[in-house]
Simulated scan of single mutants.
Amino acid sequence: MNNSGMTTGRPAGYSAISNYSRVEILHLVQERSDRTVAELVSATDLHPNTVREHLQRLIDDGYVVSATEHRTTRGRPRVLYSATDGVTACSPVQHRKARAAAQRGDVMRRVLPGDAPKLDTAALHQIDALVEDLVDAGFDPLVDESELTVELTPCAHASSQAEHREVLCSVHLGIMQSVLSSAGGPLSVDGMRSSCDPRECIVQLLHASQRP
């Protein structure tokens, strides 16, 4: 078992998703890409300036990307917002964070004693990026490389935002998959183990060699 063991220089909980309004916006752009500010304002009842501020924060953290609409008719092109997925919607911020996490992980594996890694280098770098992102979001992840599980118990958001658990879980899983894809490698999110206790959360990963 390995715990995070890494620090990023930012306080836990600093992540953009520590604010539920941003979680809600991220959930909307995860559900459907190319959203406009007007659509997000209508869906959230937030002020347009507030939505723009939240979107910028999500962009700064690498969770959302923007693109200018291509118009074939007259009119000012709109800005379209999509959730980063690491494949079709890629964030340079997320790629940069993944590279930095991999470098820190390589240094730690060289200087700290421990068992030989059970995963190949690409998968280890994915885990490095995933752990650092989760730590920034306020979690204390525990990774089991043999079982390919990530334990997030106790969930940092289970009590404060219990009424939004379904949306939160969906958003967190989407972010985790995005981080893994941006880092590049054989691992992907397979799902979350169900539990009657909302504080308990274990995410199952899948190695490419395990896919049918």
Rank of each mutant, 00 (worst) to 15 (best):
R104P: 00
A116M: 07
T153P: 10
Q177N: 14
E163P: 03
D133H: 08
R74W: 14
S146E: 15
V23H: 00
L134I: 11
T72I: 11
S4L: 08
G62Y: 05
A16R: 00
L112V: 15
P48L: 01
T7C: 12
C201Y: 05
M176W: 06
T44Y: 02
E200L: 15
D61I: 15
G105Q: 08
T72C: 04
V64P: 07
D190L: 15
P92W: 03
V93I: 11
L187F: 05
S160G: 13
G174W: 01
H164C: 09
D115N: 09
F139R: 00
I25K: 01
V179K: 08
H95W: 01
L205W: 03
H172Y: 13
R35S: 15
S21H: 06
R35M: 15
T121Y: 01
C155Y: 04
Q126V: 12
G191T: 05
L112I: 12
V29P: 03
G185V: 12
R96E: 14
C155W: 05
P154M: 06
E151L: 01
A162Y: 06
S160Q: 09
C196S: 11
T72V: 10
Y81E: 02
G191K: 03
D115P: 12
E166T: 13
A183T: 04
S15H: 11
C196W: 07
D140T: 13
V111R: 02
C201P: 02
Y63C: 07
N49K: 10
L58D: 00
M108Q: 12
M176P: 02
T68A: 06
G13C: 03
L206W: 00
V37L: 00
A156P: 03
L112M: 12
E24N: 02
S195E: 01
L205S: 04
Q103M: 09
V65T: 15
D128I: 08
L206M: 10
V37G: 00
M176A: 08
A116Q: 15
I17M: 06
